[in-house]
Amino acid sequence: MLFAVTCRAVFVLLVLCAAVQTASAADPVRLGLLQTLSPAPFYIAQERGYFRDAGLDVTFRFFQAAQPIAAAAVSGDIDVGVTALTGGFFALAGKGALKVIGGGLHEEKGYEGSAILVSTKAYEAGLTAPAKLAGHSFAITQYGSSFHYMAGRIAEASGFDVKSLTLRPVQQVANMVAAVRSGQVDATIAIASMAKPVDAAGEGRIIGWAGDIVPYQITALFTTDKMIAEHPDVLRRFAQAYARGVADYREAFLRLDAAGKPIRDASTDAVIPAITKYVFVNDPDAARKISEGVGFYDAGGALDVADVIAQYRWFQAQDMVKSDADPKTLIDTSFLPTR
């Protein structure tokens, strides 16, 4: 009898040990990202346990700006990152340290992502369409930022030289909007959730959407060469969990009705709590702000390979990226689909 009890106790102990073993055996992954709305599918995947289901223990490392995320991957502080594809990112990737493995936010025709916002003064003086931007001042965060890239591509699409724009680097997104509102700069690019209130208050005018002019891959998922070489299995599981998050996100925010209007229903409301754990925390108006601010993600977290190559070539042509590495070596499509 005593023997039986002891046996059972030992058995329970063994099971418990095994359970602890499994929990701690979850592979740790450190993800670098901005604490904004743009990486929402990652919040969903985390909160709905998709990463855990894939046997991963994902830690979020939040950054104040996009550039340092890439640098942190090079220095080994994060394993995977999601960041804007900027001149700085390509410069680091071109040195052979980073690889793009999946798509993130994408500018898309019909989806209000980034607005071209002009000051009331400039609008009244005739700056009413993107094609008329030539010769105006244009606020960006920094040289080589995605805003710089967008300005360049809008100029190309509208048939004028980007050098005819007077670019004003003001470091922060908030400064760009403030510069346009106060009329110190004629134009800038701002995401919908920031641009719409300015337009509504008559402090500026939206004259177009970047996605209608230059559909392009804004952010992307990337990792290090070392990670691909040493832990391809971890990356594969990470990519699958991410894709589940993207699927939920698209279901919640990206369905359009017959009139091209976004559909908002119970599936939308269901993902809000996962997102408000990270952004608009305790904001009573969070649901509306999220629903107005979300951008487009391709199905399955697909990567727009052709556009990433085009971006790289553009930064090279602008002499902002000095590396002459083949752009194909910057991309690894073995983890996620392509567009």
């Binding site: 550039q67 640098a71 900027t86 001149g87 700085g88 410069a91 680091l92 606020a139 920094q142 040289y143 080589g144 930022s145 007077t166 670019l167 004003r168 680097p169 003001v170 470091q171 400064n175 510069a179 110190q184 700069v185 902002m320 990226v321 000095k322």
Partner: peptide, 21 residues
Amino acid sequence: EMIGAERGIGAFVLSAGNLYD
């Protein structure tokens, strides 16, 4: 030269830093 400077050694250093140049 962080804000709104097209030219200047400070702006140049910042921009080179942003581009990891």
